[in-house]
Each structure stands twice: as structure tokens, then as C-alpha cells.
Amino acid sequence: MRKLFTLAALALILTAASANAVTIGVGAFGGLSIPIVNDLSTQGSVFGVRAPVGLSTMFTAEPFYSQAALGDAEESFGGPVTYTRDGGDVTGFGANLLLNMGGGSTRFFPFVGIGSYKIERSGSEEISEVGYNFGLGLGFGLPSLPGLSFDVRGEAVMIKTGDTSQKLGNVTAGVTYKFFSTPTP
């Protein structure tokens, strides 16, 4: 199923890119990272960089690097001592595919992505696995600042761990500067 989707998506992107200007940008983002149904971590922060490549008015491919520092878990287990467990750090790099909707200075974009993630927690073995993400974003630009755009996103990240996964919900704000564009064919 995933292979079929990947091939279909690739065909659509190449078709679209051949008839449109290609744009390249660079951006940074930051926000909150919230573990989902994971008692071993609490809310933390996430930041990272992206390099969106606009392939058409419809599709943007977006390599990314992200780094999340999750909050520690604290528990007393009904006893007199409160213990603290390292919430862990999650780093990942991969690529998103954005589906652009809307026009003018505001756009709405669902996106999916795949990446290689590493979970590091003090006292535990490092986990390096593939992860999947999907989410929704809202982007907008300012007419007075061409090339510069802003976005807010909500995103779910699932890092596969055998037959289960560790999951994060990220809420981020980002800024992107488009610095290159090919002429429109």
C-alpha cells in the first residue's frame, strides 16, 4: 500500500513539476512537543529547520531536521520519595510532502512525511527507527515582505518500535524564506 502510494505521489509530483516553476526556501520552526499515551515523558519543546522545495502550485517537498527535548516524568509510586525519569530527546530527519490548498497570501496544507528518528533517554538503549508523520498547516505571507512566509502546524509523529510506536503531537510555528525560483515555463 505504501509503495503504491509513493509511486502514485512521485508520478503526480514529477508531472506537476515539469510544468511549473520550482522554488527553494529555507526555514526554521519551534514549538511544543507532547507525548501521546506515553507515561514516561511529559510535554517538552521541539525545534528544527526545513528546506521546502515548491514543485508546483499543488505540491511542496520539504526535507526537515527536528529535535525535541521531552519533559521528565516524576512519580512517587505512593511512597515518600519522588523519582524523576529522563523524558528523552528525539531527533529526526526526513521529508514531508505538502499538498497546498488555497491561494493568495493564505494557504492551507495537509502534509505527510517519513523520517529516520532517534530516541535517546538516560539509562536506556538508544532507539533508531523509521517514523511517520502527518498533520495540517496554515501558512500566510505578508505582501510587504515577498519571499517570506509564516506557518503554524499541528502534527502527529509515530516512531515505529517493533509492533508498537512512540508517538508525539507537535504544535509549531515557523518562518520560511524563499530564496530561489526558476522561471515559469
Binding site: V37, N38, D39, M158
Partner: peptide, 9 residues
């Protein structure tokens, strides 16, 4: 099922 999993203390 990777979506529907949890880490329970």
C-alpha cells in the same frame, strides 16, 4: 497497530 499503542507505567 503502530498507531494504536501506548507506554503505560
Amino acid at each position: 497497530c503502530i498507531i494504536t499503542s501506548a507506554q503505560v507505567l
